[in-house]
Each structure stands twice: as structure tokens, then as C-alpha cells.
């Protein structure tokens, strides 16, 4: 499925509906929803519900997402948000899902863990041709994680930021600018000459040269 085409045709919120319709792992499309009611099932039972797999494969998948074997007897409902999300990721590694949609992925992790997942997603995209869709309003996160950013300004006004052109679009009224973009734009408005950087180290060097 061509994700951008899907978003342009249906709007970003169409993914909301996907989560309610597609509960089966036979579907190629899956939206991770950790807010659902996990009832009393243990992690092991939950993993097995989504498809048969060996105990070893289960443990290996958990390890891939930084979880230990001792989490298996724990109840899903008692796990922290980040642990629930990691269990869901482990399932997706076991099941053959083509496109995985994450609403607000970044809110469950601090910087170090986000960087770990960034590497993991890149590997999964490259090696297993998985597609990840992040529904989010945090541009700094999207800049780090996405190759293509689709901003839905209004129902009918959608902007595609291929090879992100953060400096060309005025996104402030919709989802807010990245802080670094906002800072550089303001600096230039004040008559300083700073190039359009998206990397803090490069920006520091530029400020050093300009002062």
C-alpha cells in the first residue's frame, strides 16, 4: 500500500478507524493501541494469542525490544506503558505485518530509548521491508524517525514534506515548528546570517562564526 496516497485520499485520521476494523493479524495493516483493555492475560498468553510460535522465538523477540524472559508471567495490564509498547513490537516481529501504525510513539520513551528504536526501525525497514507510520504532532521526533512527513493542515489541505523541507513550509499554525527551525528563522529575521540547519552541532558552529 502506498501510505502517502492513502493519507492524501483518506486523511490522517482514517488510521483511527483502521485500529477498530483490523484486529486480526491476517491484515497487512496494524495499528498499535496500548490503551486497550488487556484484561487479565499474561504476556506469554498475549503473545501466543497472536499466532503460534516457539518459546525460543518468543524470548528472542522480547530480547530484540529490550525485554527479558522474566516478563512472560506478568499481566499485560500491570506493565508500564513503555513495556506494553515493547510487547506489541515483539508481537509484530513474530507476526508478518507489512505496515505498522504508531500513534504518539515518542511519548512513551526518553531520548536514549528512542534512539535505540530508531536504529531498530531502520533495520526492519531495510532487512524486512516493513513500513512504519507515526501519527504525531512532534516534528522533532518525526524528523528523526520518518523519511517522509505528511502534514494535514486542514481536512483538504495536506502537505507532503519529502526529504523534509522544514524551512519552506510555515507549520506554526498547525503543528508548530521544530525549535531549531523556529530559532534559525528568528535569528535571520534579526539580520544575522545563519544557514537553515536542522542539526544542533552545525548550528553551534554557525553561531560561533557569526558572533
Amino acid at each position: 500500500m502506498e501510505i502517502t496516497k492513502y493519507v492524501l485520499e483518506n486523511g490522517i485520521n482514517a488510521f483511527q478507524n483502521v485500529s477498530f476494523k483490523n484486529t486480526s493479524f491476517d491484515e497487512r495493516f496494524y495499528m498499535v493501541d496500548i490503551k486497550k483493555n488487556y484484561k487479565n492475560e499474561t504476556v506469554e498468553k498475549y503473545l501466543l494469542q497472536k499466532g503460534s510460535c516457539s518459546y525460543k522465538k518468543m524470548v528472542d523477540s522480547l530480547k530484540l525490544v529490550h525485554l527479558e524472559e522474566n516478563i512472560l508471567p506478568q499481566k499485560m495490564s500491570c506493565l508500564s506503558s513503555s513495556e506494553k509498547l515493547k510487547v506489541e513490537l515483539a508481537i509484530l516481529l513474530i507476526a508478518n505485518v507489512e505496515c505498522i501504525v504508531f500513534p504518539y510513539f515518542d511519548i512513551y520513551f526518553m531520548e536514549k530509548e528512542l534512539m535505540f528504536f530508531k536504529k531498530m526501525f531502520k533495520k526492519l525497514v531495510k532487512k524486512y521491508k516493513k513500513t512504519f507510520v507515526f501519527m504525531n504532532s512532534n516534528l522533532s521526533f518525526l524528523y528523526e524517525f520518518a523519511d517522509r512527513i505528511v502534514v494535514q493542515k486542514t481536512k483538504k489541505n495536506v502537505v507532503v514534506l519529502d526529504n523534509p523541507k522544514f524551512y519552506e513550509e510555515d507549520l506554526n499554525a498547525f503543528i508548530g515548528e521544530m525549535p531549531i527551525v523556529d530559532f534559525v528563522k528568528y535569528t535571520n529575521e534579526q539580520g544575522k546570517k545563519i544557514l537553515e540547519y536542522t542539526d544542533l552541532k552545525e548550528l553551534l558552529k554557525a553561531i560561533f562564526r557569526e558572533v
Binding site: K112, I180, L203
Partner: peptide, 19 residues
């Protein structure tokens, strides 16, 4: 594993260089 807000990060680094 916790990062800093952009303006705090930038200020701290600029302070390090005496700017």
C-alpha cells in the same frame, strides 16, 4: 538517557564556549 529541551541545551553549550 534523558535529553534536554532545545533552548536549555543550546544555552548550556553556548555558555560552555563563553558566548
Amino acid at each position: 538517557g534523558i535529553g534536554l529541551p532545545f533552548y536549555v541545551d543550546l544555552s548550556l553549550q553556548l555558555r560552555l564556549y563563553g558566548l
